Simulated scan of single mutants.
Amino acid sequence: MTSAAAIWLVLLLAAVLANLPFINERIFALGPRKATKAVSWRLLELILYTAVVTAVGRWLEGRSGQMAEQGWQFYAVLSCVMLTLAFPGFVWRHLRRRH
């Protein structure tokens, strides 16, 4: 896999996993269906999905060459990117008008 394809794969995975907590009512997309999930469950899922995206990205980086050391700044930016990518799902779930 080329480095460009790996980058697109991680970005697509991040966009899908960032919106997944807001799209469905199942816990971690596999667990039991809840009538309505609490916001705390959705945030916990978002944090764990961020860890999954990080792990996949690090794995792909390791396959392509030497892995770069990441400081706290990387994880702060990654958290902000995941929150930004989750915005459409959040708006769809919590801010849309219900008729």
Rank of each mutant, 00 (worst) to 15 (best):
A35G: 12
A35F: 12
L43H: 00
F74T: 13
L12A: 15
G31W: 06
R33N: 10
V81I: 11
W59P: 04
L85N: 00
W59A: 14
A55G: 10
H94P: 06
W72V: 12
N19M: 05
T54C: 11
R93Q: 01
S40L: 08
V10D: 03
L78M: 14
F22Y: 07
R98Q: 13
W41A: 12
R58P: 04
H94S: 07
S79H: 08
N24K: 09
R96D: 07
K37L: 15
E61G: 10
L48R: 08
R96I: 10
L11A: 13
T84F: 10
M1R: 08
F28D: 08
Q73C: 09
L43E: 01
G65F: 03
V52T: 12
G62Q: 07
E69G: 13
V77D: 10
A51F: 04
A29W: 07
A76Q: 05
F74W: 13
A76K: 05
R96N: 09
I7R: 10
V10E: 03
F87G: 06
L60S: 01
A86D: 01
C80R: 11
I23D: 02
L12F: 06
T36F: 11
E61V: 00
R96M: 12
H94E: 08
T36A: 15
G71D: 09
L60A: 03
W72Q: 10
L48H: 08
M82A: 07
R97N: 04
A5P: 03
S79D: 09
Y49A: 11
I27H: 02
T50H: 07
F90S: 01
K34Q: 13
L95P: 04
R97C: 06
L30S: 12
T50G: 15
Y49E: 05
S3I: 14
L13C: 00
V91N: 04
T54P: 04
H99V: 12
I7K: 14
F90G: 01
A5H: 05
R97E: 06
P21W: 03
W41N: 14
T2K: 10
C80V: 08
A76F: 09
A35H: 11
P88D: 01
